[in-house]
Amino acid sequence: MRTPFDEAVTRHGGTVLRVCRAVLGAGPDADDAWSETFLAALQAWPDLPADTNVEAWLVRVAGRKAIDITRARARHAIPTDALPERPTALGVARDDEVHVWAQVARLPERQRLAIAHHYLGGLPHTEAARIIGGTPESVRRAAADGIRALRRTHHADEAAQSARTAHTRKEHPDA
């Protein structure tokens, strides 16, 4: 690549963050995966062929970085008899924006990985399947099931939100 690396950060920074969050939840792990992705990309940038699909390439790197972090997390986990209560371990619902990531974190891992690589990252099913395992068809299904569940929650939230707003208006017509 002979174009400024900074442009790639501007253009794809959001997509890469979504991919990292879908795999790891919103928080320091996803932030680390994002940083490691772009640091590795910065290093490799001049040697990257000019016709590279930069977004797809970054998504692959991000997927690997996120999986590295998942494995490191598993290695460092301390086995205990009782499951600790960790309702906020993945994606603390600080506000509405982060809320969706808490929803994503509650999906089965396979759906999260399929959403990350295929839906958010834009990789074809066949390639997503090579990365996360299983058949392209199973990746398609996992992504579709996950998105359907999220859409349901999202629209239910929106409906609840507008119902609340309508209710408030009725109670306080002058407001």
Binding site: E36, A40, V61, D68, T126, E127, P136, R140
Partner: peptide
């Protein structure tokens, strides 16, 4: 962090860095 292997590991990294054609299932 496995910095050096991240982009150079040939078992994990597709040698073709271009995106393949969209598969028909899509």
């Amino acid at each position: 962090m496995r910095e050096s292997t991240a982009l150079g590991d040939s078992t994990e990294t597709p040698t073709d860095t271009r995106t393949e054609a969209t598969d028909p299932h899509d």
